[in-house]
Design a protein around this nucleic acid. Structure first.
Lengths: 362, 362
DNA sequence: TTGTAAGCGTTATCAA
DNA sequence: TTGATAACGCTTACAA
């Protein structure tokens, strides 16, 4: 039989309420009694049952961080910052992963009741929930780095992230300005409705703006049977792309991991980066800095996003008023993996007859 | 006020026990009543309180996966396999991270009571707990990829991992056989008592076996103020190492991430890999395959470890008998980052006067 | 400073 | 097939 508060009370010859007081550091208890109780607890390895506590408690000081998917490297830094800030505010936190297929709102709903949560941070999970469903969440929450949601006001939750479409535009625009005429994109799963869609939109937009035609054959999606956003996925897709004769000089992967995979495929074919192909990623993971050559990418300001998210959450918790979300600017890091599309380079460059920013391509 | 089972009962004009039956799919309930109840539940967005359920329930079908630290990339694959197997057995699971500083046993102890857990999988966390403490865990558990523990039998928990010391020996031995006389190691935190210690032990052992002297200056520890086992940590430590005049030709990092960081430091100094320095890692992450040059490493058989762990756990749960742990062999992948120490290469090689496997160094 | 007792929201037992 | 009711283990008035 499990040890309960009653057993401890009996051993100590006191009432359960006294034991409870000792456990919870209540002021109105004789220090000597407290000592006795605490010691007995230690001796018997008594651990209070959290279900019972949560059931009885009307409130807690707990915030849950719900992370979608298990291996988004972008979140490591984010989570650490958020945790630190939560602790600083003397709240408890609770990091739980929610499966790619699970509905994070459902998980949240359960947790709110079960743990009497004070607030929730949703990480990733490219939110596309009905407003109605979000309404059920009757505690403050923030969405961090979740694809931008155009929420009507009145909603409790705020969204903190970069503008995926705009940043994607930025990168594609950058490649265009480097003189690349034909730019392939390594996208998300076909039919993706979250960041994959937004980043693809930005890509199209930039191409059109630059008067480039959008060649659908240069738009590639992730393979279903390989982990999403993985190096392997980028590698396999790039390998296929290289086998077709599509004459492009740059490839933009919508995640850094895919970009690294793409690099490998390029190297394995004996091509050089950036001489034969320019490669760009997205996210700004440390990996892009350490890779050889270092990879051009859009860095998401995770620290800022984390800080703003958690501050907003505490503001909502404490002052009970909604906080507007915020869009953060990403930062394009130009690294070694991209270079100007030159006349000499670019094995696949076959057509070079458009005008570009003062430069002439014959 | 939150909706409870009573509210639903009232709305439906039935007793709470009937609602409970509907929720829990009990057979002894009129299908019509069940429908009515379920519909009312949906209409009111009623979510049962898990604390109350867990409190009342005597048993569950839940297994917890407790992951130490937030960003060990090695675990992604492991977790996925374990999850799949748990679902296949029609159990629920529950993935929670435990902070680097938290005691995972304490967390487990709470969870056991709170959730009436059936079993626990500890991931990482390089277990060094007293047997006494482990005894408190009165549910079956397995340790996966946690530094090998020499548990006396009688313990419920089994340990599944590689033999870190032996594998580390293997890698160091490999580098020695390539002719490297002076091999630096990028270790864990100084004073580490888990895998860091074991891998360092294997390194020393191999050097001694090969008649190499152990130069303490070539043993480097992670920097405290930089994330552990990170690329950045490897990079910074390697940078320092390169600035001293220690004449070594190979560096063995006890994690792949550190190895990648080390590579960057080497490249930045203008040296070549493997010509000037051989670099080896440990873990067998995909990253080492995709890096340029690909990195020699010891691959941990995570799939096998995952499979064996979870199978053992279910065996313990179902048949209530202890299962012995198992040690898995790692697989050394020789890649592009290591090569034979040649007479010509090795900028730092200054002394080459030892005999080595049939080769003569002047 | 301590004890008594009510009740948190469920499930399970028993009787109807 | 259903309903009443007693737990589950704890916290918290309120009383002493």
């Amino acid at each position: 039989m499990e040890t309960t508060i009653k057993d401890i009370a009996r051993k100590c010859g006191v009432a359960v309420s006294t034991v409870s007081r000792a456990i919870n550091n209540h002021p109105d208890i004789n220090p000597r009694t407290r000592e006795l109780v605490l010691q007995t607890i230690a001796e018997h390895n008594y651990v209070p049952n959290n279900s019972a506590r949560n059931l009885k408690r009307t409130a807690s000081r707990t915030i849950a961080i719900l992370v979608k998917g298990i291996s988004n490297p972008l979140f490591s830094a984010l989570v650490q910052m958020i945790e630190k800030e939560i602790s600083r505010n003397k709240y408890n936190f609770f990091l739980q992963h929610v499966d790619e297929l699970q509905d994070e709102i459902d998980v949240a709903l359960e947790l709110i009741k079960e743990k009497r949560l004070k607030g929730i941070v949703f990480l990733g999970g490219y939110f596309s929930h009905s407003k109605e469903k979000l309404k059920q969440l009757n505690v403050p929450f923030v969405l961090s780095t979740a694809g931008i949601q155009r929420l009507e006001d009145g909603t409790v939750g705020s969204c903190f992230s970069v503008d995926d479409q705009a940043e994607s535009y930025k990168m594609t625009d950058f490649l265009c300005r480097l003189g690349h005429q034909r730019i392939a994109i390594l996208g998300a799963l076909e039919g993706d409705l979250s960041i994959g869609r937004l980043r693809l939109l930005g890509y199209r937009e930039a191409l059109i703006e630059h008067g480039r035609s959008v060649d659908e054959r240069l738009i590639r999606y992730m393979k279903e049977d390989i982990p999403s956003y993985s190096m392997q996925n980028g590698y396999e897709v790039m390998k296929e792309l290289l086998e077709e004769d599509l004459s492009f000089t740059a490839v933009y992967a919508i995640s850094d991991m895919q970009a690294i995979g793409a690099c490998k495929a390029i190297f394995q074919k004996g091509y050089r980066i950036p001489d034969d192909f320019a490669v760009a990623g997205f996210d700004g993971l440390p990996d892009t800095y350490y890779y050889e050559p270092s990879i051009t990418t859009i860095k998401q300001p995770v620290e800022d996003i984390a800080k703003a998210s958690i501050q907003a959450l505490f503001h909502m918790i404490k002052d009970k008023e909604a906080v507007p979300g915020k869009v953060f600017a990403g930062h394009l890091f130009e690294r070694e993996s991209t270079a100007r599309a030159s006349e000499t380079g670019g094995l696949y460059v076959k057509r070079r007859n458009e005008t570009e920013t003062g430069r002439y391509f014959k």
